[in-house]
Design a protein around this nucleic acid. Structure first.
Lengths: 335, 335
DNA sequence: TTGTACGCGTTATCAT
DNA sequence: ATGATAACGCGTACAA
């Protein structure tokens, strides 16, 4: 079937020209007779010739290949980002390696090493679980990186960042709840090693302080960033703090889990407990009651990240951007 | 920063040995003194040397790279498959190119051509929108392909298939509804050019026939495979057939859309209208009422597809598998 | 155990 | 407008 790959030499032989003439024809370079060009292209087509990007990349040092590293593409938050990022990459003629790290630092390092060996031209790194020290060698070895949901300890000429203002968004949510007479507000935080969870925690504490609320440890529970994690965390919360009347969750999945916990424990939403999520994944509009959440356009986020990466790669050496996206409180039924 | 890539020659020079000795050390081949091996590995590490898979692939003809082509990774159906597939690929040391076709045949062809040029070792092609004739040249040019949700017109030694029994599943749903006294059952089908939608349609007709039901054109509406598509299609259906008492949807997203349409038009679920979805995406368990659906383990589906692909690539020349997965009717609240 | 020569498929350079 | 030759970085075959 395809035991012998057709090479440029086969086309050259069939056309009775040299390798270079075929190369010029394929790459639309000038310095070639238009007639012979079309003749060669036709022969290449007939032979089913496809130029090897391996061989080409070896000499041009360009692979037209990028990496996209994220904890879990099955999480709608990341899936939407992936879609936006791949769309932009495609429009610019790049292919994208998808990597799931499963929140595992070792797997993330393995992935980055393999991408390095594949000679990608850049990568979008989402919600990395690596420490700054672990991350640094990869940031320096890769030609360009965009960090999503992650800060950079010190500026790096080939690293841009794209962050959602998690703390500000959470403050927004706290203020709204206070203004609507909620007295006992709790935070369902995400994984302890998640940077954006830490930021939400800061925003929560700041929001409580600004609004004259105490926020004891009893008002904060952690969980894995899934529906089930949110459900379990909420149940723990209800034990510690039975009279809680508002819950802010790390993300929409956990918020939905919290809503399920409310249902189980006979708490009505939003009457007894207000629930606010974050990210506005498609699910948020579809639950009953529908979920009030901190809206972010995730597909646009992916597009922005990829655009920033391409800017870094093909740009005119302008300093990398440090983008911050502001979430908006999108009022639905749950709060 | 990284203007000069470190090559095997740099390591060899630093270690005072030949290129081959370094190569042997890196690839863990025998015929090398253990001491010099560890010494070389240490130097390579210090220099930050990463072997180029481009150069290696050019000589070994192996790129450790696969492709995953699907309409839309933001669709949870495909996102789950992607997760399962990438997990298996990672376990076997492969990297995965992710491609979204956006249901666009031209973009799908572009993608396949680019993957061919990248010299991938195989691809998983999900819900292809290409005709058999359009697909054939790619199936013959690629070393190995697994077709998901798609049949093959004639057997091909390097193409396996993995299908959900859509028609059988739909028959199951029809039978269940009939047994539960539903009299006017409708189908909300997906895109006209979707193979699995066609199969659901066949199963629907067969189910109606077996159960002594007529199924006129009025009982079938089409829509795009999204929540909104399902909502619009259901509203059209309710106009044509106001007394419909059961709806089977192409997928869960459309089923959720149909549930919203019921809400809008004041129809209670499941009292007045029973709703059955398909695929059992995570959302299905979270709606209110929760969605009765044709359950398929999607992550496992992705794992199976990738396993079949690796079998095709590294196997002992056994004929490709034609896998069929049986969906189960998972009863929740909506029917 | 280690090294040398060559080839993988392509493009860049310099010629004609 | 076209061609010959030398790279790109690495592995294979064979020689030392």
């Amino acid at each position: 079937m395809n035991r012998n790959r057709i090479t440029i030499a086969d086309v050259a032989a069939a056309a009775g020209v040299s390798l270079m003439t075929v190369s010029r024809a394929m790459n639309d370079r000038d310095g070639i007779n238009p007639e012979t060009r079309t003749r060669i292209l036709k022969i290449a087509e007939e032979l089913g010739y496809h130029p090897s990007q391996l061989a080409r990349g070896l000499v041009t040092r360009q692979t037209s290949t990028l990496g996209l590293v994220m904890p879990d593409v099955a999480n709608p938050f990341f899936a939407q980002i992936a879609r936006g990022a791949e769309d932009i990459a495609y429009q610019h003629g790049y292919n994208l390696f998808l990597i799931n790290t499963a929140e595992d630092a070792q797997r993330e390092k393995d992935a980055l090493r393999s991408l390095l060996e594949k000679e990608i031209e850049g990568a979008v790194l989402c919600s990395s679980r690596l420490s700054q020290e672990e991350m640094l060698p990869y940031l320096n070895s890769l030609p360009a990186v965009v960090l999503v949901n992650r800060d950079l300890s010190e500026p790096n000429p080939n690293v841009a960042t794209l962050n959602v203002n998690d703390s500000g968004g959470t403050e927004l949510a706290v203020r709204y709840l206070v203004e609507h007479k909620r007295k006992k507000i709790a935070l369902i935080a995400g994984p302890e090693n998640s940077v954006s969870s830490k930021r939400r925690l800061l925003g929560f504490e700041e929001g409580c302080r600004q609004n004259g609320l105490g926020c004891s440890a009893a008002q904060i529970v952690h969980g894995s960033p899934t529906t089930q994690g949110g459900e379990e965390a909420a149940l723990r919360l209800f034990e510690q703090l039975p009279d809680v009347d508002a819950v802010i969750a790390f993300n929409d999945l956990m918020a939905v889990g919290a809503m399920r916990a409310c249902l189980q424990s006979g708490r009505s939403i939003p009457k007894q407990v207000a629930v606010i999520g974050a990210d506005d994944i498609p699910l948020a509009a579809l639950t009953n009651p529908s979920l009030t959440t901190l809206h972010v356009d995730l597909t646009a986020l992916g597009e922005k990240a990829m655009t920033a990466l391409l800017q870094l790669i093909n740009g005119n050496g302008e300093p990398p951007e440090q983008i911050v996206v502001q979430p908006e409180l999108l009022l639905r039924q749950s709060a």
